[in-house]
Design a protein around this nucleic acid. Structure first.
Lengths: 204, 204
DNA sequence: ACGGACTGTGAACGATCGTTATCATGGGCG
DNA sequence: CGCCCATGATAACGATCGTTCACAGTCCGT
């Protein structure tokens, strides 16, 4: 009998693969995709470099898998419920800030290593990115109906920039999360973003 | 007679060096520091790979020079005039947004390649980064006096994340700048940031 | 005109990279 | 037990990297 799968997720993994991916994500965040060798990824995961090829077809697939993992999480968070537009946007923002706090490695990769995604993974991922961006712009457009499409796109990117910056905050700014817990950071960022969007309600 | 220099700037260059640096900045932005070879940098600048060593001691120094160039521009923009704190913050923000639009390559490097800065350039640049961050936090703290230091650090990073996101906006969002000119983007981003900061005036 | 400093080139070196080949080990099952 | 497939390790290959070397052309002061 085939094991049950969550069809909406592009990636499903065994436990050993997760160790490899976690090690790779951390290493990629620290030194960049091209700055880390297969031997180092293997060593961090507790095995040798060439053994990684028993789990992935190569370094490129490891990166592609990590980017898809991040996209799984981020895309789901943008699902509209059809209810109050402001609630949908608020929920998406909260989920993103929390994810940027808990999986800094994945979010940093999503910001920095998109350009290093190789064939044949690039087209499929570019398509997913398109859907993701369109959903975000819908969330923003519903909240700010009097903006034209270019403005919606810009405001969306600015808001995402604010949210994702959490994953690159230096230790000084990150202390807020370690002392007060993640919720403190979530509320602070949401206050900033919502305040900015409220100010943009004035129209063109 | 020694040529006159602007002492506040860490970097001063001849014209040929600028071509090399521009080519390197563009290549680094597209493929990442480790993803570009010296031969490619040279080819983009109109010469061969080994010729670059007539102008720089190596690849690491090219990156270090680029990061210092970005820091020259960004640090100057954070100078307080002692006048109205709100004006100082506003001027710094405007300068940063405009710089993130005009020199996307340098700003992207400043965001992504700090970790690839090698010895012996790392300590000096880390020190400059510290001064830069502290000046920014002062600008924010003067504008929001009832925030504690950790909150100031977090709000500062979030605002910088918003501003610097401009340099990574995709084409869709960037069309605002090509159709309406850079000022449209500057005003939009400033409205977002100021709106967020106003909302945070409510205190802890 | 001569000599040296400056700036360019192609060839080549050692190191490291991603990947493959080859072999060892061990658990599940006839 | 004997077999096999999954999973590990070591050695090695070709490619590419950053860098150095040896050399050629050009400009300029004497």
């Amino acid at each position: 009998m085939t094991p049950p799968r969550d069809v909406r997720r592009a990636v499903d993994l065994r436990e050993r693969d997760r160790r490899i991916l976690d090690a790779a994500a951390l290493a990629f965040r620290e030194k960049g995709f091209h700055g880390v060798g297969m031997d180092e990824i293997g060593a961090r995961a507790g095995l040798s470099g060439p053994s990684l090829y028993r789990h992935f077809s190569g370094k490129d697939e490891i990166l592609a898998t990590l980017l898809h993992l991040a996209m799984d999480e981020l895309y789901e968070a943008t699902a509209p419920t059809g209810a109050d537009p402001a609630d949908d946007l608020d929920r998406a923002l909260r989920h993103h800030v929390r994810f940027a706090l808990e999986r800094r490695d994945l979010v940093v990769l999503h910001q920095r290593e998109l350009g290093n995604l190789a064939e044949p993974w690039r087209p499929a991922f570019t398509a997913r990115m398109g859907h993701y961006t369109r959903r975000w712009e819908e969330l923003v457009a519903r909240r700010l109906p009097n903006l034209d499409p270019d403005e919606v796109a810009a405001v969306t990117q600015a808001a995402l920039g604010t949210v994702f910056s959490v994953s690159t905050w230096p230790a000084r700014a990150h202390r807020l999360a370690t002392t007060g817990g993640p919720d403190v950071v979530v509320e602070l960022v949401l206050e900033l973003v919502h305040g900015g969007l409220d100010g943009s309600l004035s129209g063109t």
